[in-house]
Write a protein that binds this DNA or RNA. Structure first.
Length: 805
DNA sequence: GCCTTGTGTACAT
DNA sequence: TACACAAGGC
């Protein structure tokens, strides 16, 4: 439940970010948030006791994304119920039971839709479901830990001791526990809203001199929290008002004076004051498990005036062995029985071949594990940046000609799709659609890590200290220079362009000449991945059978789609071809990983380098699910100019064709003060990277996190800012609300746009759209007609000029 | 008019 | 679990 209205209350300090910016960091995740959302898709099956692992699949999509971004996830699960939350849990249980009864009634009456709604409302995440996810995560080398009590406190503790640098959750309570950085509402593309503890004082009315984090916590408790309902008529706004004017340090005394502060006749009983203190202590001293010391500890050390014996409402300590077994996930927290046997000393992840060498990337259960050194992520580097404000920089991207092999592939790809009808069918066929989604995921895994901006730290420890000195290929020009024509002769053709994506030879490619894929077991849907749960006492029984408690409901339910889950259970892996090392993405990436000093990336590439495609329940490959190459479209002939009339960046083709909103993706580079714009219209060779650097505050919903200088207006005129984009260009970082207001129509038209894209590109069979989610809702206008495609002619070099604001 | 409170709805596929 | 919205209290 959290603090009602807290997130909207903190809107001022919402910071749209992508989790990829925390590459190299550890991110602790409130696993139940994902489990709950994942369970939504299979609520009926779960309620009826049928076997499904859809919720695992859902969670693993997030996990895989983070692994592909070199982020170490740590999954944190809820443990035992706190006495403080007894009432909340009871109320939830009653609601679930009520909905179950309603569902049964609807099913008796033949009202399936209503029954489904009720079943969705009675989703209960069981310890068995958590174990299923834990087993899958561990096979991928992802750490899991079960909190002795609430995951929230455990997450905060991991953040506090430096194990995790960021927390991902949907629960606003995390802020009260004292987390430094919390990422809310993260989607599958890693976009979310970051709230930092250090900025909380910006939203409260408490004067900065009098601001204390304690006051923020008091304010939230006063407005009502899981441990204490609010006094009638007091919400966040009134609670904020109290702490704006209150100077009373003693919270008990302050609460007694509440009617005075609120100028009302509100009654504050002693019972409420005691409850308030208990709630506050629960936020402060709840038991958590320290995986490094392997023992239970309070979230914060007890001060002298607090007697731990009086904090039974904040949890009771367990014996050391039991505490460890709970933390390892071996104990069913409902029944208390041992239902798993995970041992970190002997466990070897199935799908991680190499152990990371960076100590903070090891398992938190590994004895050699060390927390990541606390280095300010950006601050040390911000001061050293060159000031490019008001400058226009010219960025050259190294563009290589297509290999003949690739051209052949495109032709073959084009021949696969014969007509608009076929494309339309592809889109609307459920199984094929899923295969297409898998294809999108593959593209993401395969290409995005490559696109990230990673300057060589050996050659440039302070990369941006002297941009032009360190990298002569970057030409910095003054704003007064109006000549947009670039003198190609004066540009030294770079051997290696640090702004460009990596060499195509190192890029994983789908190889049409590779042998047919071998049928392998799914990574995380292999049957053996759930064998432990089947063997255990808590198992829901054989597949297809309902558990006894659900038999009554199950007998009422006549499923129409009996075997949809099988689509997930059989996944084909494109086996690598040993004889074609150069074409083998797996080997390429391994080689690439081994070239890097941080071998932790090996496990990351291990995750991202495989291509999956779905097959049907019998294991037959879907013919339309083979990976596709990028489109032939090239951006190399476009220039980026500032147009005074719209105060925006526009793009013009060399043949004077103007295109708006060319940017498909904004990626935060690892370097501070730099944002990379990835122009993904073309294939990998023609991708161009433009660094934007600006001090201006956010416009059009594009925001750069605080350590970065703010955002540049990109492809959106000032008249259409406030998060709205005229042409539907995807702008990462829009708040949900502004997305709804501005792009809800875009979203509803998304499928039509995609269909249009198919239709448009199908006219030219050599041209195919990249089925990348970043491009789906782009290009609604006719800017990208096949005629605009072109290839670089200027010595494989493309030049973009960007005015730095 | 501000604020709280209750209700309805989406969440995933 | 959170958000949007409407109703109602102060």
């Amino acid at each position: 439940m959290g603090i009602q209205g807290l997130l909207p209350f903190l809107k001022k300090i919402h910071e749209p970010v992508n989790v990829a910016q925390f590459a190299g960091c550890t991110v602790a995740i409130d696993a139940y948030c994902w489990l709950h959302k994942g369970a939504f898709s299979c609520a009926e099956k779960l309620a009826l006791g049928e076997k499904t692992d859809q919720y695992v699949y859902y969670c693993m999509k997030y996990i895989n994304y983070m692994l592909s971004k070199n982020i170490k996830p740590v999954m944190v699960f809820d443990g035992c119920h706190l006495p403080s939350k007894k009432n909340v849990e009871k109320s939830r249980r009653e609601k679930r039971e009520l909905n179950k009864k309603k569902a049964a009634q609807f099913l008796r009456e033949g009202k399936r839709a209503e029954a489904r709604e009720c079943l969705q409302r009675c989703i209960d995440i069981t310890p068995e479901m958590a174990l299923e996810l834990m087993n899958t995560c561990r096979d991928r080398g992802v750490d899991c830990i079960v909190a002795p009590y609430e995951a929230d406190a455990q997450l905060a503790y991991l953040n506090k001791i430096g194990v995790a640098q960021v927390i991902i959750t949907e629960d606003s309570d995390l802020l009260l526990f004292g987390c430094e950085k919390v990422l809310f509402k993260m989607d599958h593309a890693g976009n979310g809203i970051l709230i930092e503890r250090k900025r909380l004082n910006e939203v409260t009315d408490i004067q900065s001199g009098h601001y204390l984090f304690d006051k923020f916590r008091y304010m939230c408790i006063l407005s009502g929290c899981d441990y204490l309902p609010s006094l009638s008529g007091i919400g966040l706004a009134r609670a904020n008002k109290v702490f704006k004017i209150a100077r009373q340090a003693d919270i008990k005394q302050l609460l007694k004076k509440l009617p005075t502060y609120l100028k009302s006749s509100i009654s504050v009983p002693q019972e409420y004051i005691d409850g308030f203190v208990a709630a506050n202590n629960t936020f402060l001293y709840q038991f958590v498990y320290d995986p490094l010391q392997r023992r239970l500890v309070p979230l914060n050390p007890y001060p002298q005036d607090v007697n731990p014996d009086e904090l039974s409402y904040a949890g009771s300590p367990f014996p050391a062995k039991k505490a460890l077994q709970i933390a390892l996930g071996n104990v069913n927290i409902y029944s208390g029985e041992i239902f798993a046997s995970f041992d970190p000393e002997t466990f070897v992840p199935k799908y991680v071949k190499k152990k990371p060498q960076m100590l903070h990337m090891l398992s938190i259960w590994d004895k050699n594990y060390r927390v990541k050194p606390r280095v300010p992520l950006h601050e040390t580097q911000v001061a050293d940046r060159p000031n490019l404000k008001g400058k226009e920089i010219t960025v050259k991207a190294n563009l290589k000609k297509r290999s003949p092999h690739k051209r052949v592939r495109e032709v073959e790809d084009a021949q696969e799709v014969k007509s608009n009808t076929e494309l339309y069918d592809m889109y609307h066929s459920p199984v094929k659609k899923r295969a297409r989604v898998a294809n999108i995921d593959r593209n993401d895994d395969e290409e995005k890590p490559e696109e990230e901006f990673k300057p060589d730290p050996k050659n440039s420890p302070r990369f941006f200290n002297s941009l032009s000195e360190a990298h002569p290929e970057v030409k910095v020009e003054s704003e007064n220079e109006t000549d947009n024509d670039v003198d190609q002769e004066n540009i030294v053709s770079p051997r290696r362009n640090i702004f460009a994506s990596k060499s195509p030879s190192k890029r994983p490619r789908f190889n049409l000449n590779a042998p047919k894929p071998k049928q392998l077991k799914s990574r995380f849907f292999a049957n053996n991945s759930i064998s432990k749960t089947e063997d255990s006492a808590f198992s829901k029984g054989e597949s297809g059978k309902s558990s006894p408690k659900n038999e009554g409901l199950s007998s009422l339910y006549k499923p129409v789609h009996s075997n949809t889950a099988n689509v997930y259970s059989s996944v084909t892996h494109h086996a690598s071809n040993d004889s074609e090392v150069a074409q083998d993405p797996k080997k390429d990436l391994e080689k690439q990983a081994s070239d890097e000093s941080d071998l932790s990336s090996v496990s990351i590439t291990e995750v991202s380098k495989h291509h999956f495609k779905f097959s049907d329940a019998k294991g037959n490959n879907s013919p339309k699910s083979s990976p596709k190459g990028g489109s032939a479209f090239k951006w190399s002939k476009f220039k980026f100019n500032r147009t005074s009339s719209t105060d925006s960046l526009s793009v013009s083709h060399k043949n004077s064709k103007e295109v708006k909103n060319p940017f498909k993706k904004v990626v935060y580079s690892n370097q501070p003060n730099r944002k990379q714009l990835m122009i993904k219209g073309g294939n990998s060779e023609s991708q161009t990277v433009v660094l934007i650097d600006s001090d201006e505050d956010s416009t059009c919903g594009l925001q750069i996190p605080a350590p970065f200088p703010r955002t540049e207006k990109i492809g959106v005129s000032s008249a259409t800012n406030k998060g709205k984009t005229k042409s539907g260009c995807r702008v990462s970082g829009l708040s949900k609300r502004s997305k709804k207001s501005s792009s809800s129509q875009d979203t509803s038209n998304k499928q039509h746009n995609l269909k249009d894209m198919f239709a448009k590109f199908a006219h030219n069979k050599s041209e195919k759209p990249r089925l990348n989610h970043d491009t789906i809702d782009c290009d609604k206008d006719d800017a990208f007609t096949p005629e605009t495609k072109s290839y670089p002619t200027s010595k494989n070099t493309s030049v973009q000029r960007v005015l730095m604001k």
